[in-house]
Amino acid sequence: MDLVALLAIQVLYAIASLALISVGLAIIFGMMRVINLAHGEFLMLGGYAAIVATSHGISIWLSMLVVAPIVVGIIGVIVERTIIRFLYGRMIDTMLATWGLSLFLVGLTTAIFGNTTVGISAPLGSFQIGDYRTSAYTLFVIAVAAAVLGTIFAVMRWTRLGLIARGTMQNANMAAALGVNPPRVYAVTFGAGAALSGLAGAVLAPVSGVFPTIGVAYVAKSFITVIGGGAAVLSGTISASALFGTINQIATFVTTPVFGEVALLAAAIVLIRLLPQGITGRFFRRGL
């Protein structure tokens, strides 16, 4: 029974971390049709931002939840203004340019921070489930993921900002005719996606540590989640994270973490063969 509870928490954690690392990418891809291959590096920068802020005496909660998203969000806006905006409508070129950006950022952080792992210890300690102990930080990550997804839903559904964003993504010309400035919407959306990636990277930094090439560990999983989810940002991310997180965690539990990742990929390839439009291409079509 305790084992079941533990496994349930583990599965929930796998789902939450997948959703967390994917949601920034999902927003940028789902709303702007831009594939951001530097996504993993945005997560990595979030981790560094949190660690640098913490080492300068800012409280760990403040650096993770406030400093990291703001720093990476600003970087995101700069990237959108200097690179991405010249490439709208040229999806392949955007991918290539953001891949170049990804390499550039890896090189830059290696030059600044060195090729070593830095970490912050996870706060909150651990708690007991029957005979097992598990980190309380796990629950915090789950809570953050839930809060982020809830906030996105609320903003998109009930605020004027969300309305403008959705309208621009559906038909930019019509939105422009109604007095919206699409370039600014794109810049803000890209910045918001980057900020969420920064938040995710910072929240996961105590779990994994941070090093310049950590983006590689994230990028494959988050892409698979976004593609598996399909066009709808929120319901796609949630459904794909739930599916892949469960598969990953159960395979990890039965065998090894590496095999868990292989199972995740295999599941994703089969899913894309069956549902080329992603999960939301067929189910939850009316979702956000």
């Binding site: 010249f86 340019a97 170049g100 890896v106």
Partner: peptide, 13 residues
């Protein structure tokens, strides 16, 4: 990575 990244961005743009 730094050099290759700059080359890639420059050529795409």
């Amino acid at each position: 990575p730094l050099i290759l990244g700059v080359i890639l961005i420059a050529f795409v743009l």
